[in-house]
């Protein structure tokens, strides 16, 4: 039983790789903290994708070699990074002007809950310490396409793709695609319902249905 469970569905890396299949040549992309960050390791060879860091950089490079860390060069997760030949720097107002202004093609973010209407909750659990929304509300409001990557169910087994979010929202009607460890859901526009378009290896449509309370097509 344990072995069967371990072999089923996508790992965190595989979820990131699945999200990377949505990249297109020339895209400017913002990646959230956690699984979304792993998308950077899965950019297809030969494809030019420029990563934006909302603290003021386009063209995020890989982690620096040991000894070459620069305290003045960090990503939005406050990790040390490096620059590329095509990198540029700018201030926070400019950074969010490009985000809010619809210039970023794609954002991949983590999620606590997504509703069947595309609402996203990922910044706050009432009663627990509130750390703040950072740039998440700006990203979902302004970026052209929003992919949420999250585990299909929470640690206690309750569904995370649900009819209506119970947690405070990050954005209302903002999600275009959901990638979980079990399946992929997509909708063509913000008026349409989500459709189940793909199952992870070893996962059945019935299993996805049993672990989802949101209504969706397919």
């Amino acid at each position: 039983m344990a072995t069967a469970v371990a072999n089923k569905g996508w790992t965190r890396d595989q979820m990131a790789a699945r999200a990377a299949r949505e990249l297109e040549d020339g895209y400017y992309v913002n990646l959230g903290i956690g699984i979304p960050t792993l998308v950077a390791n899965n950019i297809p060879a030969g494809m030019t994708v420029t990563l934006q860091s909302e603290n003021g950089m386009l063209g995020i490079g890989p982690f620096p070699f040991a000894g070459e860390e620069d305290p003045d060069l960090i990503n939005a997760g406050k990790q040390t990074i490096s620059e590329l030949d095509q990198s540029s720097y700018f201030d926070s107002a400019q950074s969010f002007a490009m985000i809010r202004g619809g210039h970023i093609d794609l954002a991949v973010l983590g999620g606590m809950e997504v509703s069947e209407h595309g609402d996203l909750a990922n910044w706050m659990v009432p009663g627990k310490m509130i750390k703040g929304m950072g740039g998440a509300m700006d990203l979902v409001a302004g970026v052209k396409k929003i992919i949420v990557v999250m585990e299909h169910v929470s640690k206690d087994g309750s569904p995370k793709f649900i009819p209506a979010c119970t947690l405070p929202l990050t954005g209302k009607n903002v999600v275009d695609m959901i990638i979980t460890d079990l399946a992929v859901f997509q909708r063509p526009n913000h008026m349409s319902p989500f459709k189940l378009i793909e199952l992870a290896p070893g996962v059945t449509a019935e299993e996805v249905r049993s672990k989802t309370t949101a209504s969706y097509e397919g």
Partner: peptide, 21 residues
């Protein structure tokens, strides 16, 4: 914050930058 000794206004990052600008 939890003791109610500090007031916090959470402001989305881009909104905060634009409010200053």
């Amino acid at each position: 914050f939890l003791a109610g000794e500090l007031e916090v206004e959470f402001c989305p990052q881009g909104t905060l930058a634009e409010r200053m600008r």
